[in-house]
Amino acid sequence: MEKANEVVLVGGSAGSYTLITDMMAALPETFSPAIIIVIHRNPRFTTKIEDTLSTRLQKEVVQAADKAAILKGGIYFAAPGYHLLVEPDKTFSLDISERIHFSRPSIDVLFETAADVFLDRCTAFLLSGANQDGTDGIRQLQRMGAKVIVQSPTEASISTMPKHAIEASERVDIYSNRQILSYFRNLK
């Protein structure tokens, strides 16, 4: 399997779970970017999103493992309790440093490190949530020329996170849920 040349990043917190599963369900049979998702979840309840989705979608959906290569067409979730980072050789690494905005994994950490490695070959989605995670990451993504899409706050179950990002940075695209799903349906 080849390493990905391009990544699609997704950051979601409270209220984003259903949309994320719908996004994954909308994906075509094959596509070339790797999809990397951080969703805040309580490490104490080991909700197995990966297993649930794998079964439902009949696709391989995995937890990003430390030092694993980021492969074309891979769907990866950040492990609960650890930050997920992208390394310059297009592998993952995990880190258990301090929480950021009360979160580990932190969306900022994934977004910032992916931006440094994949530069403008990055598209990032920031979805519903009750905190401010993601905003700093978006700034770094934009600095590197990546495309940033924020879920429309009017449609987000909890609008704090998308709103915060929109207020903090110009140049973000605001998508409705329908537009977000259509992006994933048409991914090549």
Partner: peptide, 9 residues
């Protein structure tokens, strides 16, 4: 050391 984490530190 893993570079991305080191760079952040």
């Amino acid at each position: 050391y893993s570079k991305s984490s080191l760079k952040r530190r």
